[in-house]
């Protein structure tokens, strides 16, 4: 298996507050890594560094063997390869669902409008959103909006998908429909880095689970090991809190 992402010694701070304190992470193609950890542990920031929405202060990142943390890298080209889905969906409210999904293929991939829209409709249909194509995002439920956001990222045909707590803003009854979509993608072999609070989902889907704590990866391993026999005291305490909150 070839390497999809390699991170080495990633540091990032905001206004003097160090959020990432040297992160190393690698994943191969078709692998799924789940990042778990308390809010503020740096999961979102790490994901945003991988597609260059945040600039790293130190450390290096390679995507498919090509370093993207060098001067003069084409950020837009990197982002075409690495899709991201956000916690708050961030759909474009002034565009229809079809417009949201076909915008980047038209503008960035220079597809013709007809081709881009046909492709968008096909993708939407595959995720059960065919009849929503003409609707504006505010007409959709949260789960539908998030599925549209996933389709929007997929329309760019990315090699890697980053998912930033994509179910955290959803009502509990809408979480399953979104997670099912991600399960489907994992089965099709999509390479994904998933920041999540859904532990049972992480246990099901992840090839590897990384526990982030105060900007460091404290513990990493196969899900059965992390969830059943964590070696670190802090991992254990975090999982105890999650269980107490009824999230696992």
């Amino acid at each position: 298996m070839s390497e999809a992402i390699r991170l080495e010694g990633i540091h990032k701070s905001f206004d003097g507050l160090e959020v990432l304190k040297g992160i190393d992470l690698t994943l191969d193609e078709h692998q799924v890594v789940c990042l778990i950890g308390a809010s503020g542990s740096g999961k979102s920031t790490l994901l945003r560094c991988i597609n260059l929405l945040e600039q790293v202060e130190a450390g290096r990142i390679w995507i498919h063997g090509a370093e993207i943390t060098v001067q003069g890298v084409d950020r837009n080209a990197v982002r075409r390869q690495v899709g991201i889905v956000f916690q708050a969906f961030n759909l474009f409210p002034h565009m229809t669902v079809l417009g949201n999904v076909s915008l980047a293929p038209i503008k960035v991939l220079k597809q013709g409008r007809a081709a881009a829209e046909a492709n968008a409709r096909e993708l939407l249909a595959r995720f059960g959103l065919a009849e929503k194509a003409g609707d504006y995002p505010d007409r959709l439920s949260g789960g539908q909006q998030q599925r549209v956001a996933i389709v929007r990222a997929l329309a760019m045909d990315p090699d890697v998908l980053l998912l930033d707590e994509i179910t955290s803003a959803l009502d509990p009854e809408l979480v399953a429909e979104v997670l099912d979509v991600i399960r489907g993608l994992a089965e099709q072999g999509m390479t994904m880095v998933i920041a999540t609070h859904e532990m049972s989902f992480a246990r099901d889907i992840a090839d590897r689970v990384s526990f982030l704590d105060e900007g460091r990866i404290l513990e990493e391993g196969p899900p059965e090991q992390i969830f059943s026999a964590p070696t670190q005291e802090r991992t254990r305490r975090f999982l105890d809190r999650i269980i107490a909150a009824g999230r696992m």
Binding site: R79, G83, I84, A88, N90, K107, V108
Partner: peptide
């Protein structure tokens, strides 16, 4: 976050401004 979403899709700064920010 609107700019972040459009930049994340690979739109350039100018494309993002033109297609996403200015219309809103």
């Amino acid at each position: 976050s609107q700019t972040a979403a459009s930049r994340a899709l690979g739109l350039s700064r100018w494309q993002s401004l033109r297609s996403v920010v200015i219309p809103q």
